[in-house]
Design a binder for these strands. Structure first.
Lengths: 208, 208, 208, 208
DNA sequence: TATGAATGAGAATTCATTCAT
DNA sequence: GATGAATGAATTCTCATTCAT
């Protein structure tokens, strides 16, 4: 668990690289550009990170390091199942918003079969799913969730938030005068609302 | 709208290229490999598609060509709002499943800001969103949806389905003995169920 | 056995590369220089030879291709053991002289443990040794060779000729006015003479 | 002639470097690896040896330092020409065997024209040759050598021994069950025997 | 149209060497 | 003397694209 401490140069490299990998993907990220953008000599990059693929791995590992911890911690603090669900969504939303590289890289990685994802990163996503499972199994009197496979709400949360956040710059390009897109807060509220409605037992919702 | 008819060679190229773009992204797709995998001489590829970026555009254009049409058509056939919503989800799910390159490329494109998406492809997604908006505004007596920004359910549908479908190979790698992952049908059913519950007016769902 | 026919470009590359490998060794040979000296575009080199190490292998394979055949053929034409030995030395001397890259590369390769020698090249040397063994076992009435391990004369021939030929430029740098170095013919004659004297049975030579 | 005394670190560096130069040649030897294999910090290597080419020179100078002295001394102790020749071969064989880097580097250097050999190292080889010349001119009554250019026997000795010794690891890879390769002692005996037979005046050997 | 060969502009990586401490 | 970090100049190799037939 001992996180190795990187010196200033290595940190600058990793941060810039993470941004670039998010923007352009692995193959679209050019080491020369990384050198320019990070202001670090190219040989130094190799000194600290051996090669591009290792650098990528380090970036992902760090990027996904604390996600599950943060989300799980937040859900544990919430008293009821409904509030746990809410905490789950809100915490993930906040993390994804504060670290926009994360949803972008996650989407690319999932799209390519996760072949380049370090195990640690994959485990984080697994732990998130397990956590959601547990929440949905909460037998609270007031918020007994439907017996549903957790994967569905899991992807509804992760998927919709990733799409919402990463598509933001794209949507801003097409500024329509009419009803504006929801803010992240609004989006999150609506997401939570729909999920809670749909996941509550004895829900009077429509049967398809 | 006149769809140019491609000959056998061009078709082989475009199909293989689409697969490869989905697997490896634009930058990760190498023309030499395309030549090998498609069994078509490299110079021929250039003869038929000018250059890589044009080939990419052609692939995307074709990939996203009928999506909105198909979904809209299906929703129009459904009599009630709830069934329209259901048709929306099921049609998109079917299309994405039958053309697995589509969700993969969509995710990559969104993640990178959609810079390389041809306008036509973007329009398809716009039309899908508009269609969903319309559905949610349906003033049916029996299925009056909440006044909610359509973007949220839109991304819940598209996002969760894309994540579910593209992550399938990855999840199969981590075969857990316990409760299996839902099939696409199950996933779709649950997705629809949650959405309908959450989007129905006067829903007694929990307030956050 | 089918020798692939290289086109003009590939031949130019291989010939120049062989020269350069002989002069500077594997690591001392720079692909950019090869491109300049051969007048061939760098990418073409890679097109024809994949990478440096494969190019090296091709050079060696070709360089050592016919050596054993030529030597063996020459020895077979000679009627007596003594003349076979003479043919062995003279043919190898001629080959090494006409293809100066061969002794140079052979020396480097042996010095580094032959790790980079393609099997075919090694086999040629093996065949040469076997051939010499056979010659030394000749039971001619007039030239019955001593029962001696063939490796010794083998290396006396190969080793001395390689040293003589590759050191020629070096020795010419130190032009001494006194007795000139022997020509290749003289060197070969003396080599043959010493060997024959030393290898003849019932030789009245000095016991050590 | 004052040999500077190296401290432990410098010795470790030079010994490791000599090994590596023998194994991989000048260009194939990488300073980073030297640092790892010698366990000495890279900057320290430069502190002690200025740069790679100087380090190489130091290695060669030391490697070839006492060769001629040792051989000459041994030959001077031998009373007759035949025994001097024997001493020459045996001493060189012992030196080359005890310092396997020497024959390897010698072969590489000769193969590349000796461009990187420090003068002192070249002089050693010159002195060896001169010494052999002198031996062959010995006018002993009992061992009058043929008037032959000394270069031939010189290279027969140096060349065959270098080839024999450096090819040992390679030959061991091809363990044949039949007649084993001669040991160094056997090889040396046979070498001496052939040379003496071939170099004795009035030798009744075969005329070619 | 089809194809083997050619090519220039990159892009990843290496390596000897130096610097600051 | 020793050491981790930094650096510039190579060096190997790749890749989209074009050419000649």
């Amino acid at each position: 668990m001992a996180r190795q401490t990187l010196n200033v140069t290595a940190l600058k490299i990793r941060n810039t690289a993470t941004e670039m990998f998010a923007e352009n993907g692995y193959d679209g990220t050019i080491m020369d550009e990384l050198m320019v953008r990070s202001g670090v000599n190219k040989a130094s990059i190799y000194y600290h990170f051996q090669d591009k693929s290792n650098l990528y791995e380090q970036c992902l590992t760090h990027l996904f390091a604390n996600i599950a911890d943060a989300v799980i911690e937040a859900t544990e603090l919430a008293p009821t199942g409904a509030l746990k669900l809410q905490a789950f969504v809100q915490t993930f939303a906040k993390l994804a918003h504060d670290t926009p590289a994360m949803p972008a890289i996650l989407m690319r990685e999932i799209a390519s079969g996760g072949h380049h994802m370090p195990v640690t990163a994959r485990q984080q996503m697994q732990r998130l799913l397990s956590n959601l499972k547990m929440i949905l199994n909460t037998k609270d009197l007031d918020q007994p969730f439907e017996s549903i496979n957790a994967l569905t709400p899991h992807f509804m949360i992760i998927g919709s938030l990733c799409f919402y956040l990463t598509s933001q710059p794209m949507r801003e390009g097409i500024k329509t005068t009419e009803k504006l897109d929801p803010t992240l807060e609004e989006f999150t509220q609506q997401l939570i609302h729909i999920l809670q409605s749909g996941l509550v037992k004895n829900n009077e919702g429509v049967q398809s």
